[in-house]
């Protein structure tokens, strides 16, 4: 099959960017979207042109490294998958596909389709953990955890940190990302000790990074490749209120 592409090209953070048209033929419908971009890049290199910079690593939907806005939708047309899991059979022969980076103030541009998502790491450093040193743990079965609680925690912990929630949000809010982490520890007894400090510090850092506020559009949930529910945002807000009331 053949597709026409309109791809965001931007040589660097301070250079202007624009959409550039390309077309590529001989695509196999079982190819992944990124393999189609690989093929385009190989063609560009052969023509003496600079290939399109984009990121990917595991190519099976778990590392969270890839992330493109395809035809206006973060991670493309299919629900519950990452960009690397999108297959070309999702598209029509001859279709025009627009490809852009995950745009947000808190995700500064690096080059073409590559942005800097280190803000997520900085948020995590404020409380995305249980403060337990190596070697100081008790036997794992001493503390029973209700199966349902463990399952809820796992639902939230499935976040891959890709940033699609931010890219999809009209406010570029990171509430789903933060809410998922806060929720994971809210469901588990291990998270209880630090619960107040965790939510306050993580939310403060989220604001400091320049992410917007949540205004309940739920676009994040629709874009999330791991189908993380917006109920995690509600839980984060409740935790936040409780923490404020606790006066920490």
């Amino acid at each position: 099959m053949k597709v026409n592409l309109r791809i965001w090209r931007q040589p660097g953070p301070h250079a202007p960017g624009r959409l550039v048209d390309y077309s590529i033929d001989g695509i196999d419908p079982s190819q992944s979207f990124l393999e189609m971009l690989d093929a385009l890049n190989e063609k560009l290199i052969k023509e003496g042109k600079e290939p399109v910079a984009f990121e990917s690593d595991c190519r099976e939907g778990i590392c969270g490294n890839c992330g493109l806005v395809i035809n206006g939708v973060a991670h493309g047309p299919k629900a519950a998958c990452t960009t690397c899991e999108v297959r070309m059979r999702q598209f029509e022969d001859g279709q025009t596909i627009t490809v852009e980076p995950f745009r947000a103030k808190a995700f500064p541009m690096i080059k073409d389709l590559v942005v800097n998502r280190s803000a997520f790491d900085r948020i995590m450093s404020k409380g995305g953990f249980v403060a337990v040193n190596s070697g100081s743990a008790q036997d794992a079965n001493l503390q029973p955890i209700h199966k349902d609680d463990a399952e809820h925690a796992m639902d939230a912990a499935a976040c891959i940190g890709c940033g699609a929630c931010v890219a999809a949000c009209p406010n570029a809010s990171a509430s789903l990302f933060v809410g998922a982490k806060v929720s994971q520890y809210t469901w588990l007894p291990q998270g209880k000790v630090e619960r107040h400090g965790r939510v306050l510090k993580m939310v403060k850092q989220m604001d400091a990074e320049g992410f917007g506020d949540c205004s309940n559009h739920a676009e994040c949930e629709a874009a999330c490749p791991k189908e993380i529910s917006v109920s995690n945002i509600s839980r984060m807000r409740r935790e936040y209120t409780k923490a404020l009331l606790a006066g920490v």
Partner: peptide, 22 residues
Amino acid sequence: TNIIDQCVAQGVPFAREYGGTL
């Protein structure tokens, strides 16, 4: 055996039985 203890203490959501054990 220490690894499992450590990871559970960190809040790794391992699969559980109905009685709450791993």
